[in-house]
């Protein structure tokens, strides 16, 4: 272990300093232990699920065939959410950093923060009660005109509680974090580069293309990945909005939808007993690993470009 050697102002190491320094370091280590603990305890409680039979796995023969469709649904919902959220977030971020007058920009920033403050369970309520029903005619229309596209094969859901609706709600929920990070980076674009572009006769958009977007590229990527991490793990909105049957399908608008790992846990945990709970914990471990990898990569990209960290 390295000893703490940063300047203390007093040449002699005092007992108080020693105690306090180690106390703070213990707190830091506690965080690492907690993170490791998440992995360890989920593994310990998840292991019994490897011996689980069809009774505990909703008819699936083993853990792999049980978790795989859930992973599919998790990825599908998160990717669609991201496809909606990222362009929208870039637009909102640009409106705050480069388009809106300063006073309006501050207000818009506050509203986006408000979007982040709404609890997920309330998003769930809104998804069931407002968004789903509003989308039913859209799904009907898509199913009757575009049923040759596998995504819109139909038959359209009558409640609107489809994976597509769930993805829209997810998109709204990850929008604030993607917006917050990209707008921060856009606002940091060196003014010199922006002026260089304008002085060459660039329009505002050309200036953004020449100076702002290249500067923020890595930030946009990591913001999108952090958004992906959120979308993968978000539970309640999906659990409430989605009418899930756990199938594997590309059909986004029908009444039979894939489920996600998180939603499946939330929906079935209370009624599950014994090994079935272990199976749910094992699926939670899979979710933890996926989001850990995504977040780890996203943060690695960010920290690579942060000044001072080499």
């Amino acid at each position: 272990m390295s000893t703490v050697t940063t300047g203390t102002g007093s040449p002699k190491r005092r007992l108080g300093d020693l105690v306090f320094a180690n106390l703070t370091r213990a707190a830091g280590l506690t965080i690492l232990i907690a993170l490791a603990g998440v992995g360890i305890f989920l593994t310990v409680e998840g292991i019994p699920a490897f011996g689980a039979g069809p009774d505990d796995l909703k008819g699936h023969s083993n853990l792999l065939t049980y978790v795989a469709p859930l992973v599919f649904g998790t990825l599908l919902a998160a990717v669609i959410a991201l496809l909606i959220a990222v362009p929208l977030a870039l637009g909102v971020a640009l409106s705050i950093s480069h388009y809106a007058p300063r006073r309006i920009a501050a207000g818009v920033g506050y509203l986006v923060d408000l979007l982040a403050a709404v609890p997920s369970v309330v998003y769930g309520l809104w998804g069931i009660a407002v968004l789903g029903p509003k989308l039913v005619p859209v799904y009907k229309w898509l199913a009757s005109h575009f049923d040759w596209i596998p995504f819109f094969a139909g038959p359209a859901s009558n409640t609107g509680r489809t994976i597509f609706t769930a993805s829209i709600v997810l998109a709204l929920m990850v929008l604030p974090i993607v917006t917050a990070i990209t707008r921060e980076i856009f606002a940091q674009t060196p003014r010199l580069n922006e002026e260089a572009a304008l002085a060459l006769g660039a329009t505002r958009w050309e200036m953004i293309r020449l100076a702002v977007l290249p500067y923020g590229r890595s930030g946009i990527v990591s913001a999108a990945m952090l958004g992906l991490g959120r979308a993968l793990g978000e539970t309640m909105a999906v659990a409430m909005v989605l009418s899930a049957s756990g199938v594997v399908t590309w059909n986004l608008i029908s009444a039979t939808n894939p489920s996600t790992i998180a939603a499946n846990i939330a929906l079935t945990f209370a009624d599950a007993t014994g090994t079935a709970r272990n199976a749910l914990i094992a699926s939670g471990l899979v979710l933890f690993l996926i989001t850990f990898v995504v977040n780890f990569s996203a943060r690695a990209i960010v920290s690579r470009y942060e000044p001072g960290s080499k």
């Binding site: 998440v38 989920l42 979710l287 933890f288 977040n295």
Partner: peptide, 25 residues
Amino acid sequence: RWIRFLVDVMTGIPSIVAGLFAYAL
């Protein structure tokens, strides 16, 4: 540096995983 980095990674832990952790614990 590791604590700082992993704390950032931890902000992305899904809430349901935190719940499962507490339950398993």
